[in-house]
């Protein structure tokens, strides 16, 4: 059976089951109020895209620094990177956002909640990026560094011409996967009142009292972003499957 057909069947069955579940719950859909607030949804959706992208770029930088820190010869630098990664990965993003906004940002006088939101999101995602980059650098065989040294490259040339070009191919698929997580995690920005996609749905809901009519489009809006990203991640994985046999 072709893969597209299999996907269609599975999705059709799921939608059918979902419709049955709604019917038996006796829920009456009222779309008018939500439709009138469509601009609010769209604005929130665009804010989500923008903040996710900004956080991704920043988190890639943070992650690269942290990955280099994890591999550092200096114990203090290594410890700093390790503590950062474990602390961030071990605590809920919700807590990080609240502490980041109401305690840290407040203390340093940073008031723009969009800036704080992007920063906290980038620091959060950066900890995962750090592990992705560390694993990518570690999976380059030792023979590659040997060969780079044998032909007389400087350490910086070896990194630039030999190690990084191979590591980038290895980390691109998991980085695309991390972007999928980032888009969904950005929904928590609503707790510090950033007018992104999820907050828009919550606000429309509190005006219209039509809960499912708000949250079903919300889910669809996120899928619209995450499905292409997942497809991109899989595509990159296939495209860079050459490797091996050096």
């Amino acid at each position: 059976m072709p893969r597209a057909l299999a996907h269609t069947i599975v999705v059709a069955v799921l939608i059918g089951l979902l419709l049955l579940a709604f019917r038996s719950s006796g829920y009456e859909f009222r779309w008018e109020g939500v439709w009138e607030s469509r601009e609010m949804f769209l604005r929130g959706w665009l804010v989500t895209i923008g903040m996710s992208l900004a956080a991704l770029v920043l988190s890639a930088l943070v992650g690269l620094l942290a990955a280099m820190g994890l591999a550092s010869r200096y114990r203090l630098v290594e410890a700093l990177a390790r503590v950062y990664v474990e602390l961030v990965r071990g605590t809920p993003l919700l807590v990080q956002l609240l502490v980041g906004f109401y305690v840290v940002a407040n203390a340093v006088g940073l008031e723009n909640r969009y800036v704080v939101g992007v920063l906290v999101l980038a620091l959060f995602s950066g900890a995962y990026m750090a592990e992705i980059f560390r694993a990518g650098l570690a999976s380059i065989p030792a023979g590659q560094r040997d060969a780079a040294r044998a032909i007389g490259l400087t350490p910086w040339q070896a990194l630039r011409l030999v190690i990084l070009p191979q590591a980038v191919r290895l980390v691109l698929p998991p980085v695309a996967g991390q972007l999928v997580s980032l888009v969904k995690d950005s929904s928590l920005l609503s707790v510090i009142a950033v007018s992104e996609f999820t907050l828009a749905a919550q606000q429309v809901n509190s005006l219209t009292y039509s809960t499912l009519e708000c949250y079903l489009p919300l889910a669809a809006g996120y899928l619209l972003l995450t499905l292409p990203l997942s497809a991109l991640a899989r595509h990159l994985e296939r495209r860079f499957a050459w490797e091996a046999g050096s």
Partner: peptide, 8 residues
């Protein structure tokens, strides 16, 4: 080298 170590 034994395992050639070309840049893949």
């Amino acid at each position: 080298f034994q395992s050639w170590n070309l840049f893949p």
